[in-house]
Amino acid sequence: MTSQEMKDIFYNGLWKQNTGVVQLLGMCPILAVSSSVVNGVSLGLATAAVMALSGAAISPIRHAVPNEARIPVFILIIAVLVTVIQFAMNAYVHALYLVLGIFIPLIVTNCIVLARIEAFAAKQPPLQSAMDGLAMGLGLSAVLAVLGGLRELFGHGTLLSGIDMVFGAGAKSWVITVVPNYHGFLLAILPPGAFVTLGLLIAGKNYMSQRAAANEQRKPIKPAVVTA
């Protein structure tokens, strides 16, 4: 894999084709678990792990699976991987597992996972597929981190609350209280707040992309740099 290919994959996953603010796939968990940074990032990383592993697992067998059995086999593999991760989370980060609850098994039905398998892993070599899954998953995690951060900040005036669910009781002191004695703005924490904040994030992304495109047009055309 060339470094350019790698760069493209990550540029796509993290920015250009971002699942959270561009493709808008898998909205249900995005809206439901993004009430805090810790919840959002945890589910984002779990999804990233599933996507990277399923990309790596499915790509090598893509020629061995008959076309008509493709979807069931893919889903089967994804479901197995998700269940493995669910067991692992239940065993090692139990408190977090209880908070994320139903959304861990639901990663199976998150359309972004199957979408990337179909669009990418079923056509590309294993390493690239794993990287694509990882990049897409990290892009999702980034959106969940920002979304969770904004909602937590406006809703509770804190950041990183619940970090002790991941790193044990000792991590309680990591919680940042940004606004002490905050009244609390419930709307941000409730589901409507997820929609409003995500809408603002999408608007922000579009604004930045458009501005970048406008700048690009104004600039004189540079000679392309050829990398091998």
Partner: peptide, 8 residues
């Protein structure tokens, strides 16, 4: 709606 939901 925002107020009644946020500051009941």
């Amino acid at each position: 709606a925002v107020l009644i939901v946020s500051f009941p």
